[in-house]
Amino acid sequence: MSLLTLENVTLKFGGVTAVNNLSMSVNEGEVFALVGPNGAGKSTVFNMISRFYTPVRGSIAFDGHDLLKRKPSQVPSLGIARTFQNIELFERATVLQNLLVGRHRHRKTTLVEEMFFIGRTREQERQHRHAVEEVIDFLDLQAYRDKMIAGLPYGVRKVVELARALATKPRLLLLDEPASGLSVEETQDMRWWIDDIRRQMGITVLMVEHDMGLVSKVCDRVLALADGAKLAEGSPAEVQAHPAVIEAYLGTAAISKTANAKGERV
């Protein structure tokens, strides 16, 4: 069943067409990757789903809801969470506070209840904390719980951002380059986590990633983008072998080389 559907989406910045007539659909329960060279429009697709950008044409639907009718801050309440390419954490707050912000969409208290800390507020805080602790356990962040973000190393920040997205209890998780800047071991961890997020939590994952090693290990389907348009779609192996993809990445010379190696002419 298709959870997220983009149909004929086009986005322009001034005269530049960043995304050109793109259609794609992510099924419930799968891990889907967007790949492509720098500037292909991958993050732009994310930013459209998060509603930071509005396409000039086309439609985006999530689980039957028209996303284009929502404000950016209403998107998470549908069950969509995301991370950012250049980590966007709340720097002057602790890890715990960052994750608790992730629970924002689940709050039920009114302003007056929060002002005087009466009614459901205290019980709600306990529940939020409980949910957040589950995420902390899942991602092994116990040691950093009360640390300020400003002092954390890059790799940990990356995990905290993933944790914050998970704290929202999403149905769809958008990961913007989850492995960029991570060491080999950290990338390995990320791979297990993405697997577990899908298997144990049943969360659908849409990610942008350059590391084809990671993509081919965790993804069910891959869509290759170049210059804002779809190049190829299919299983990781199919997309990697697709001539148009190889051309976009390595240029035409490379394609004839691979072809020659196979003893064929293009």
Partner: peptide, 18 residues
């Protein structure tokens, strides 16, 4: 917490539903 979120990053505050 929403106050702090807006202070530190408006963009990701929105992405968290603030």
């Amino acid at each position: 917490r929403a106050f702090a979120a807006v202070r530190d990053s408006e963009i990701s505050a929105q992405a968290m539903g603030v």
